[in-house]
């Protein structure tokens, strides 16, 4: 499948730029809003790959629900008062951070350029998805047959999160004395 290189590089570039904003921005609120842009760019890339359902879910779930939670938590904590100051970190730390990032980016570029892509199209090609009846149908069928175990385990993972939250915020102990 061909995807337009222009749009791919456009959205990927915006995503990377705003990811950097997320990290380097001084106030949490602007970090959060930069993250929304990143999520939208991801959605656009998914749409370019004709994964329209994932694109829609990306916007609904990440840019919608999760970001609202983020912003809500930032608002509740009033975290905008504590602004991070990068000038305080030592020059050695900055230098080594830049150095390792450079090595990482350079290394991955080299590796990706030197890795021949040997595999053909997977079992879920575009034509097949069209024959099955579209993305939504394909995903829901796979989710409840081939990938049923990871799907159910994810719900256990969410259960762990819920119980963990309860355990962290709970006040009263079952202890009788005291």
């Amino acid at each position: 499948m061909e995807i337009s290189p222009f749009f791919f590089y456009l959205f990927a570039g915006i995503a990377i730029t705003f990811s950097l904003f997320v990290v380097f921005s001084k106030s949490p609120i602007s970090s959060a809003f930069s993250l929304i842009v990143v999520f939208f760019c991801f959605a656009a890339i998914y749409a370019l790959l004709e994964a329209h359902l994932i694109a829609a879910l990306q916007i609904l779930v990440y840019a919608g629900a999760i970001m609202v939670l983020f912003v809500f938590v930032i608002m509740l904590l009033g975290a905008d008062k504590e602004v991070l100051d990068f000038k305080k970190s030592s020059i050695l730390l900055k230098f080594s951070a830049v150095l390792f990032c450079g090595i990482g980016v350079g290394g991955f570029t080299w590796v990706l350029n030197h890795s021949p892509i040997l595999i053909g199209a997977g079992p879920h090609s575009l034509e097949k998805i069209k024959m099955v009846g579209g993305n939504t149908r394909a995903i829901s069928e796979l989710l409840f047959s081939e990938y049923v175990l990871p799907f159910e385990l994810t719900s256990i993972l969410l259960l762990v999160g819920i119980i963990g939250c309860v355990a962290i915020v709970k006040r009263k102990s079952l202890c009788v004395h005291k």
Partner: peptide
């Protein structure tokens, strides 16, 4: 399967993170 392995790793780790901080 590596996906299952990852989710299992996260189930284990998340529960242990909370247990580590249990003395609030």
């Amino acid at each position: 399967d590596l996906i299952v392995l990852f989710i299992a790793l996260e189930i284990m780790s998340l529960a242990v993170y909370v247990l580590v901080g249990f003395r609030r």
